[in-house]
Nucleic acid binder design. Sequence first.
DNA 1: AAGGCAGTAATTGTATACAATTATAGATCA
DNA 2: TGATCTATAATTGTATACAATTACTGCCTT
Lengths: 238, 238
Amino acid sequence: MSDGATPSKPNRRHDLPRGEAVYRALRRAIIEQALRPGDKLPEDVIGERFGVSRTIVRGVLGRLHAEGLVELKLNRGATVARPSLEEACDIFEVRRSLERDVVRRLVGRVTPRQIALLEAHVAREGEARARGAAESIRLAGEFHILLAELSGNAVIARYINELVSRCSLILALYGRPHSPDCAVNEHLEIVAALRSGDAGKAIAVMEHHLDAVTERALLASARTPQRDIRAILDAYAP
Amino acid sequence: MSDGATPSKPNRRHDLPRGEAVYRALRRAIIEQALRPGDKLPEDVIGERFGVSRTIVRGVLGRLHAEGLVELKLNRGATVARPSLEEACDIFEVRRSLERDVVRRLVGRVTPRQIALLEAHVAREGEARARGAAESIRLAGEFHILLAELSGNAVIARYINELVSRCSLILALYGRPHSPDCAVNEHLEIVAALRSGDAGKAIAVMEHHLDAVTERALLASARTPQRDIRAILDAYAP
DNA sequence: AAGGCAGTAATTGTATACAATTATAGATCA
DNA sequence: TGATCTATAATTGTATACAATTACTGCCTT
């Protein structure tokens, strides 16, 4: 494989801890559902593809495991995580709590500059809708992450980031295929409510939105509870 | 150093992924404040002490970093984390949200078996109070962790675990030295309120307790805002 | 032909070796 | 004396080598 992976700059002082690029790439691939829940993540393959050693890959997989995006089984390697339906419910429940706090913190304190940021993001969501589902899914999630970051509480931001990312997995497992979990207009409503300064309304709008998101994400769960063969055969056997 | 570290069983199939013991030991040492915020954590020293290679230690430190207990600086190694005052406030704010949810979930649904578990734990807290501060601090935190686990939401449990652990760091930095952050009788009140089945009261008791915890943890923050030399010299310079 | 079993290949877990960076100590010079 | 620079030591970042476990293929047995 020689040097195909790092051609441009032979040995420029790497500003980032070597594995950062691998981390971001894997994370994005998972969130955009290019890597689907259950997919195997062999250390050799990933390492060769990015031109790093297994040491680095292993660190990245551990980090993704800590964030709940990857499962690690002893001596059996890493796979993209497959959250159970129960975990999915837990995740949405915590999201509701924390995102309520986000709105509560932002309302009345949000600056015009921040509103502009949010509106710009929603605009990008609108543009991306034509370009494909993968990017839409990612941007929809990033709206909630941006909101959490603007709230000014770093702990909430980190947790929301984790939870929203894992919602991509849930959507891939239990939702309608290739549909983003958030509607652009619902995001616009949230921004509008924040700007209005009406705390009660803003919270209500956010909760309504999260109800809708939950609904969409768990929609197909009645049809395909798991990727379970027995459940599928039930429809064909007498 | 030969074989002093792993004497009893030469090569028995290690049930646990090699680093688990190191992780637990370091975690406990940090939580019990044997390792204090800012203390250096050299890979060599830790590895030799536990009879594992730096590879393992590095993985453990990364994991502790993901949990917010350890800081990693590029090329400068790991230190026990020193949460800023702002981070401390963020942490307590999220704790309030999540622990309110815990109580809300438990109240009315808690079984006698679970009540017994909680009471047994509080009893151990009482016994430990005589034995020393370190164990008391840990047990006080573990009461909240147990509560979160009993709530049945695994995500909440994981986050509470993280947040409560980090509170040990906050207490070490800004609180009165060597004092546990929770009073045993306050924990008893929480259990009593849960058993009563009165949701409003249970939530109120928990919030009151968390207020008190926050108060105690951030008490000394006026006296020693940081381990900052300038602030100390202010009292002596004209 | 189906199932089980051995031997081999592939993959992961851990340790060590090497490279790069940072910290330390000693020497030099003003 | 004090500061700066340099050489050396200590520590971290990364890659590779080896050991252990798991997966697979083909053969053998019934």
